[in-house]
Write a protein that binds this DNA or RNA. Structure first.
Lengths: 314, 314
DNA sequence: CGCTTCCATTACCAAAGTTCATTCTCGCGG
DNA sequence: CCGCGAGAATGAACTTTGGTAATGGAAGCG
């Protein structure tokens, strides 16, 4: 296009690498691979026909030309970036309003949000209170993270995210005693324990026993709680044992605060789904959020694609 | 790459279109098609999720957002452009040193150079005096525009440019009188006139008569001159008639200052060639100049590819 | 002195950007 | 009021660019 300027990404690669003194760290900051930075700066040098960076192992030094260019360019580059950020901020298309089940939000989603913001700094997320049976009739939210099965929301576009894997958890001391006494040989032995349950999903124990090979179990439920976080507290207080989505107790298990006896890979068709009205199908921020969400969930070992056509209407 | 900024070309398209008030004129200035500008600005608007330009037929008006963005961005953009230009200027790879036959240079090449500079503002051309049999042993020039045949410089990379088409020219009055008197019926009749010739190519008349179907003509040459421009002056003074490369006298003929009797499409293997030492094969500025030169020459009606393999060693 | 850390390089792939050719739209003059 | 013409949009193909993944090589570090 008859421009003397190099491309925007080359400039940013150069400026960032110069600032951080490392291609690798620049790559991290810009969310690309190290090779991309290497190539971008190589392109830049080819464009100008002269080296801009001297690659001393373990330290980058700019050449005189590179220093001068950086100095001339860094300010304007930042100015363009901030003007662009300002324009983007004023755009409703870059806002995304979500609602999410409180436990999933606090235990799984929120800890991962910094990564989302790092990758998509131009998208602003707003959370609105969770409403059971969100009908999307009002203006907000654009999408919701809800629990159910793929067929629970026939009128919405749904994508399975995480949460199909269930695991029973109990107090470490209880597990120690029972194993010592040889009382926990098979999953069916758990029927003898006080079974704590979520009042929103009382069938979970039954599903779990079924999948664990105890088909006709009629578990006697002990106490119900209406929030997962309370259920976890009850387990920690050793009131009984509970069966929970693995993704919600992964850290508790890892820290040894609760243990998972009979740690079988048991998957239900129930799980957490991202649900959005079909009209919002091409909301750009929602699509980027969805992609990030699914990729992030896929990195989590708890992952089970329930059906191949989870994500419909694309 | 996780940038909020749009691409460089989009920004330039926007800034230029805004400045000129027209996509079409911006396209001309940036040497791209109108469609490219239209799409670039559409991309920009999609990127920011809001219109920046209001397309009133026959006049562009920026939206408020567009005005603000332009204001914020125009300065930084120019700063980057000029810093880039400065870096490019210091690069020997973007200098090109040429020598050219004086007549070709002044009559054909120089009038077209503004177009070259417009398309390649980052390339600096330097002309050095023409030396017969340039040997490229010194540092300059990088390439030369010389007259000869494709086989004249076996050790150089040569590309035919223009000048293979020869045309006889004479004073308008002479043509009028001769035609009136019915003395110019066939090309052979020109043998009766005083034949002016270039001392560097005395065989041109013979070649022309041969190609015009007068195979065994033994033209008697009248007066020789060592520069084409002088030859033209001699024709205008009606000292005689001359046979010249059409590209060199196109304007004189168009202006009626000389006329071309027997305007046959006669092509010789002789012509003007761009010659460069093979070592300079990947000199980027030279390659861009060569491409422009050949494209420009191809637009000229006087064009004859002498051989398909004109351009060797690519 | 191997080991790690960082950059270069290779092969490959997807997406961005351009072009050409055509279509659409609007304001203007007949 | 209609048709015309300038200028922008659009569709389809193509080229180039920018990116990934994986591998290789050299320089410091322990």
């Amino acid at each position: 296009m008859r421009l003397r300027s190099p491309s925007m990404s080359e400039l940013h690669a150069f400026a960032t690498a110069a600032r951080l003194g490392s291609f690798t760290r620049a790559a991290e900051e810009l969310c690309v691979t190290q090779g991309a930075i290497s190539r971008a700066i190589a392109r830049l040098e080819a464009h100008f026909g002269q080296p801009l960076v001297q690659r001393n192992a373990h330290r980058l030094v700019l050449t005189a030309a590179g220093r001068g260019f950086l100095e001339a360019v860094a300010g304007p580059l930042a100015a363009i970036e901030s003007a662009s950020a300002a324009l983007l901020a004023g755009d409703r298309q870059h806002h995304l309003t979500l609602s999410a089940l409180p436990t999933l939000a606090s235990v799984w989603l929120v800890p991962r949000l910094p990564d989302f913001h790092r990758r998509h700094p131009d998208i602003r997320l707003d959370f609105v209170p969770y409403r059971r049976d969100e009908d999307f009739s009002g203006p907000a939210p654009d999408a919701a993270l809800l629990a159910g099965t793929a067929a629970s929301w026939p009128n919405l576009q749904v994508d399975y995210v995480i949460g199909s894997e269930m695991v029973p958890v109990c107090h470490p001391e209880r597990a120690r005693l029972r194993h010592q006494a040889g009382q926990w040989q098979t999953p069916a032995d758990l029927l003898q324990e006080p079974l704590l349950f979520h009042t929103g999903a009382p069938a979970n124990w039954q599903h779990w026993f079924h999948a664990a090979g105890v088909p006709n179990a009629a578990p006697t439920l002990a106490t119900g709680f209406d929030q997962v976080s309370i259920l976890v507290q009850a387990v920690k207080a050793d009131i009984g044992i509970a069966v929970l989505q693995r993704c919600l107790v992964r850290d508790e298990i890892a820290a040894g605060r609760v243990v998972a006896p009979f740690d079988l890979p048991i998957r239900l068709t129930r799980g957490y789904f991202l649900c959005a009205p079909r009209e919002r199908r091409d909301h750009p921020a929602l699509n980027r959020f969805r992609q990030w969400l699914l990729e992030t969930a896929a990195q989590d070992p708890d992952v089970a694609r329930i059906r191949d056509n989870d994500s419909r209407d694309r």
